[in-house]
């Protein structure tokens, strides 16, 4: 295990900018795969993609929720405290960002902060590590940022993701936004994206 002092970005200012653009492009073009910047080193369970987004977007103003695996690992919480200063909250409903190392560890989407009708921007952004961004069952995506329609082939989504996502979509303008990560890359599914089966 690395010491907590290690493992940040090699060039914090420029790497954060590059990683942010990847996340921004991911949410502006839902379903596309955007390459992330790798941090210097990572922890056992907090993969490089989670670290990259953590370093780019969180700080002491952003309460974050961690799944049990991450939260019970002192090396992870110390790393987060040292590099970001972000307060870790136990209730998903209070989180501005949620980090999950696997789909099985993620509560139902509606357990997170869904924002309010007047301030829908206050909802949680969930960052979920999946097994792979490509190679899985094909789903069709439509909505803002997508020309006509696109395809996603994720591996490792939550059990009844399809139904949960539809319910989230129905809440618009409220709802969570999702960043899926694997293999050094990120894919965005903002609340506006409609997902259906088919081709």
């Amino acid at each position: 295990m690395d010491t907590i002092l290690e493992g940040g970005f090699s060039s914090p200012v420029l790497n954060s900018q590059t990683a942010f653009r990847a996340v921004m492009d991911a949410l502006a073009n839902p379903g596309t795969v955007q390459k992330l910047v790798a941090p210097l080193s990572t922890h056992r369970r907090l993969g490089p993609e989670l670290v990259s987004i953590l370093l780019t977007l969180s700080d002491h103003d952003t309460p974050i929720w961690l799944d049990d695996t991450l939260r019970s690992d002192p090396a992870v919480t110390e790393f987060i405290a040292f590099h970001t200063g972000a307060p870790v909250v136990a209730e998903p409903g209070r989180a501005m960002f949620a980090f999950a190392s696997a789909a099985a560890a993620l509560p139902r989407l509606d357990q997170f902060n869904l924002g309010t009708q007047e301030y829908p921007d206050r909802s949680t952004t969930i960052v979920l590590a999946v097994e792979a961004l490509t190679g899985g069952e094909q789903l069709v995506v439509r909505g803002p940022g997508i020309k006509d329609h696109g395809h996603i082939n994720l591996v490792g989504l939550p059990e009844d993701f399809f139904a949960q996502w539809s319910a989230n979509r129905e809440l618009f303008p409220r709802g969570i936004d999702l960043l899926l990560v694997a293999d050094g890359a990120v894919m965005g599914l903002p609340r506006t994206t409609r997902i259906s089966e088919g081709h």
Partner: peptide, 14 residues
């Protein structure tokens, strides 16, 4: 920058 970037991401999502 982080604060503005977070606002931009939510703006894109809504």
């Amino acid at each position: 920058k982080r604060m503005i970037r977070r606002a931009i991401l939510k703006a894109i999502a809504i």
